[in-house]
Amino acid sequence: MRLEGKTAIVTGAGSGFGAGIARRFAAEGATVLVADLNGDAAKAVADEIGGTACTVDVSDAAQMQAMIAAGEALGPVDILINNAGMTHLPQPMEEVDEDLFDRVFAVNCKSIYLGAKYLVPLMKGRKAGAIVNISSTAGISPRPNLNWYNSSKGWVNTATRTMAVELAPHGIRVNAVNPVAGETPLLKSFMGEDTPEMRAKFLSTIPIGRFSTPEDIANASLYLASDEASMVTGVCMTVDGGRCI
Rank of each mutant, 00 (worst) to 15 (best):
E48V: 10
R24Q: 14
P90H: 12
G50K: 09
E4N: 08
G16T: 10
P92I: 08
V58P: 03
G241R: 02
R126A: 11
A8W: 04
G139R: 05
H170I: 00
I68D: 03
S230N: 00
G39Q: 07
K153P: 03
P142D: 07
A26M: 04
G209W: 01
T55Y: 05
A128R: 11
D97N: 01
S141Q: 15
H170N: 06
G75C: 09
Y223E: 09
A130I: 00
P121N: 14
G115H: 07
Y149V: 07
W148A: 01
A168I: 13
F25K: 05
Q91A: 12
D47W: 11
A200F: 01
M123C: 05
L100V: 14
D102T: 10
P196W: 09
R23L: 08
P121D: 10
R143N: 14
N147D: 09
C109Q: 12
A138N: 14
G12K: 02
N83Y: 04
D78F: 02
P121G: 09
G29A: 09
G5I: 02
V10D: 02
D36F: 00
E228R: 01
L167A: 11
G242R: 13
G51D: 03
P214I: 06
V174S: 10
T184K: 09
I245Q: 11
S189N: 14
I112D: 06
S212V: 07
D60C: 04
A22I: 01
V180P: 10
D216W: 03
P179C: 12
K6P: 04
M1R: 15
A84R: 05
G14K: 01
G234F: 02
M1Q: 12
E228H: 06
A218W: 12
G115Q: 06
A164K: 01
A164L: 03
V235K: 09
Y113W: 15
A128S: 15
K117S: 01
M237K: 07
S212F: 13
